[in-house]
Simulated scan of single mutants.
Amino acid sequence: MIEHLEVTPYRLSTAAAGIKAAGGEIEALVGTLVRESATLSLQWSGDAQQALRGRRRSWASAWCVEPRSFHA
């Protein structure tokens, strides 16, 4: 366990840059997933298509984005 944590502007800046880079990587992976799943979902109909739309709304809510962001 950390007994002492020293925060300096340099360390804070370095941590922020690392977090921003990781966030960018996550967004890129999500984008790839969305594009690849969109191609597959074009083959779906009926209940499967409705379930996907519902899930996209849930994802959008969790990510605080518009549902259309999860369409290719």
Rank of each mutant, 00 (worst) to 15 (best):
I2W: 14
E3F: 14
E3P: 05
E3K: 14
H4N: 15
L5V: 13
E6M: 09
E6I: 12
E6C: 07
E6V: 12
E6S: 12
V7G: 02
V7C: 06
V7Q: 06
V7D: 04
T8K: 03
T8W: 02
T8V: 04
T8N: 05
P9Y: 03
P9E: 02
P9D: 02
P9N: 03
P9S: 02
Y10D: 13
Y10N: 08
R11C: 05
R11Q: 12
R11V: 10
R11M: 07
L12E: 09
L12K: 08
L12V: 05
S13D: 11
S13E: 13
S13Q: 12
S13H: 07
T14Y: 07
T14I: 08
T14F: 08
A15M: 11
A15T: 09
A15K: 07
A16K: 09
A16F: 12
A16G: 03
A16T: 10
A17G: 03
I19W: 06
I19S: 08
I19V: 15
K20P: 00
K20R: 14
K20T: 09
K20Y: 06
A21H: 04
A22Q: 12
G23W: 01
G24L: 05
E25I: 06
E25Q: 12
E25P: 00
E25N: 11
A28F: 06
A28R: 13
A28Q: 12
L29D: 11
L29I: 06
V30S: 01
G31F: 01
G31N: 06
G31C: 04
G31D: 11
T32L: 13
L33P: 01
L33S: 06
L33H: 05
L33I: 11
V34D: 00
R35D: 06
E36W: 04
E36V: 03
E36C: 04
S37R: 07
S37Y: 08
A38R: 04
A38Q: 10
T39G: 11
T39Q: 14
L40M: 08
L40Q: 10
S41Q: 05
S41G: 05
S41I: 01
S41H: 02
L42W: 12
L42R: 15
Q43S: 11
Q43C: 05
W44E: 08
W44G: 03
S45V: 07
S45L: 04
S45M: 06
G46P: 05
G46C: 10
G46M: 07
D47Y: 10
D47W: 11
D47N: 14
A48T: 13
A48F: 08
A48I: 13
A48V: 15
Q49H: 10
Q49P: 01
Q49R: 15
Q49M: 12
Q49E: 15
Q50W: 05
A51P: 03
L52Y: 00
L52M: 06
L52N: 03
R55M: 10
R55W: 06
R55L: 13
R55S: 12
R56A: 01
W59D: 01
A60G: 03
A60M: 02
S61D: 12
S61W: 10
S61K: 14
A62K: 09
C64I: 08
C64Y: 07
C64M: 15
V65R: 12
V65P: 01
P67T: 00
P67S: 03
R68K: 13
R68W: 11
F70T: 00
F70D: 00
F70C: 00
F70E: 00
H71S: 14
A72V: 08
A72K: 11
A72S: 14
A72P: 04
